[in-house]
């Protein structure tokens, strides 16, 4: 699914104290690519992600996904777009500690009205993909950090989204665990065909993506495209305990 971002502008605050979080940002993401949005804290990279996923509404510009400008959609349609086409992964995981792995992963399917029977099948499948099929009935609070992030990944992919947004997915993990998560994400990107957009300030992680979009003070600093040069590891089947 091709994503076209053009002339995106988002301003916080009023007149004198106005602050441009995004200033005329334009770029294109080819279908199935992995993209790193790289920038320092406060550079506007999170705002860009929010705008691209329909969570935020910039005052100017377009985000055209699959030929539709999502910024022009009504709230209900944007919610539906997110529930069907988008998966989210967050730095702080945001899994529900009190709920079982199964219920955590089932949430997006419940939101998009998938029948209970199909839900079971797809949740099991997603948990298997991330190697948590033995933790289905476990409460999320009993999982380790890496397992929680894998659970979050399962929740992000269970709806078979076209685009997965990952906001600092390895930020709260040690490097060994982080690497496993990275492998999982890139593997899903290559085999699942979904576009992967990672927001990070980690240069190592960014370098593993096909495209790096560097953001500085709300503007695009530069865009690197290393599709041809960067080899990827195949998805890990080890599913190592983290």
């Amino acid at each position: 699914m091709v994503i076209e971002v053009s002339s995106l502008t988002k301003t916080y605050g009023k007149k004198n104290s106005a602050f441009k979080a995004l200033d005329d940002v334009s770029f294109t993401v080819p279908d199935g690519a992995s993209v790193a949005i790289v920038g320092k804290s406060g550079s506007g990279k999170s705002t860009l992600m929010h705008a691209m996923s329909g969570l935020d509404r910039p005052e100017a510009g377009q985000v055209i996904i699959d030929g539709v400008d999502i910024l022009k959609l009504k709230n209900k349609a944007v919610d539906r777009f997110r529930s069907e086409k988008i998966g989210f992964i967050f730095q702080a995981f945001f899994v529900q500690a009190n709920e079982t792995s199964f219920d955590n992963v089932a949430l997006p399917l419940e939101i998009s009205n998938v029948s209970a029977k199909e839900r079971k099948q797809r949740v099991d499948e997603a948990l298997k993909t991330v190697g948590l099929d033995d933790k289905t009935k476990q409460k999320a609070r009993n999982l380790s950090g890496g397992q929680k992030q894998r659970l979050a990944i399962a929740r992000a992919i269970v709806n078979k989204p076209s685009i997965i947004f990952a906001d600092e997915p390895t930020g709260n993990l040690d490097s060994a665990t982080g690497e496993i998560i990275e492998d999982l994400l890139f593997g899903l990107n290559k085999t699942g065909g979904s576009t992967l957009i990672i927001v990070t300030h980690d240069a190592d992680l960014a370098s593993k993506c096909d495209i790096q979009v560097y953001i500085k003070d709300g503007k695009i600093d530069r865009i690197d495209n290393n599709v041809t040069t960067q080899p990827f590891a195949s998805p890990t089947e080890e599913g190592a305990e983290l």
């Binding site: 209900k76 919610d79 539906r80 069907e84 989210f88 945001f94 949430l107 997006p108 939101i111």
Partner: peptide, 8 residues
């Protein structure tokens, strides 16, 4: 989270 995932 629920709202981000598209819950009305």
């Amino acid at each position: 989270l629920m709202k981000a995932l598209g819950m009305r």
